[in-house]
């Protein structure tokens, strides 16, 4: 990379690799990723397979979070954010032909985890001594983030060890079951810089990666960037058959933080 001073702004380049729990039925994959590279925002959600229209709910959540993530500190704003997107979910399933088992399940709605991140420019002077950009995030549930620099793991979020995985993680529901006061979002706010790799993944892959790390064999996320989707799928299927990874929807989003120099930002370009 030619050194031309600090970048004017940071954005994301990305790759997404995914394999459904039942690889022969990709339409049943309930994991969803959304990235807006120019705005430096991304989100991953893991719809709970046993709930109904969970992919629809997960997709609504990631798109909403990339447009504007929920603010867990402001409970009124969070309630409003959830109400708006729950209404969107209801609108999407209205008119669907429902069997008795669908009707019974719809009362509880769909459930999904959510992990959203966004890049925040530094406040204060620009130039060589400018403070660092920030990598901020919110999470509910067991979708995970790994932040790497030069192939070295800097931090994990929100889960730190494989022992923390639970069969019943916290999830966001598409129906208000009057339990929102129990939603405890985890928050991330750390420095980041150009060249960093941010890995988002759903729980099966995160669990595998943490167990690898705990066994002294850290996952080589950088190598995944150039991996062909078919080769990646074969890798996951092999890990499943060896019982190294849980049979679950398995999704990896690789986000490379890249810098723009000189070019006008979309805002500046008007």
């Amino acid at each position: 990379m030619e050194d031309q001073g600090p970048p004017k702004r940071l954005r994301l380049e990305w790759r997404v690799l995914t394999v459904a729990k039942d690889a022969d039925y990709p339409d049943e994959n309930q994991d969803v990723v959304c990235v807006d590279g120019d705005r430096g925002a991304a989100a991953i959600a893991d719809g709970v397979t046993s709930s109904l229209f969970a992919r629809t709910w997960a997709a609504i959540l990631v798109e909403a979070a990339v447009r504007g993530p929920p603010d867990p500190e402001d409970r009124a704003a969070l309630a409003s954010w959830l109400a708006e997107h729950r209404a969107a979910w209801r609108r999407q399933i209205e008119g669907a032909r429902l069997a008795w088992f669908h009707k019974a399940k719809l009362r509880d709605g769909a459930f999904s985890t959510l992990l959203a991140i966004w890049l925040v420019p530094p406040e204060g002077p620009s130039g060589e001594d400018a403070p660092a950009w920030r990598l901020r995030g919110v999470s509910i549930g067991d979708s995970c983030l790994f932040h790497l620099r030069g192939g070295r793991l800097l931090r994990k979020f929100p889960i730190q060890t494989s022992a923390e995985f639970d069969h019943y993680p916290l999830v966001l529901g598409s129906v208000d079951l009057h339990r929102d006061e129990h939603l405890a979002f985890q928050r991330l706010d750390e420095p980041c810089r150009e060249g960093d790799l941010v890995v988002l993944c759903t729980d099966a892959l995160a669990d595998w990666a943490l167990r690898q790390e705990e066994a002294g064999r850290a996952a080589d996320w950088e190598a995944c960037w150039d991996m062909d989707p078919a080769a990646w799928k074969e890798r996951i299927l092999a890990l499943r058959s060896e019982r190294e990874i849980r049979r679950d929807d398995t999704t990896l989003a690789l986000l490379r933080i890249v810098g723009d120099r000189g070019e006008k930002s979309p805002e500046e370009a008007g």
Binding site: D27, E28, L52, F53, A99, H102
Partner: peptide
């Protein structure tokens, strides 16, 4: 049986 059918159901039917 009702609960198990509901648990096994997805958007497109019962798996």
């Amino acid at each position: 049986l009702q609960n198990m059918a509901i648990r096994a159901s997805g958007d497109e039917g019962i798996k």
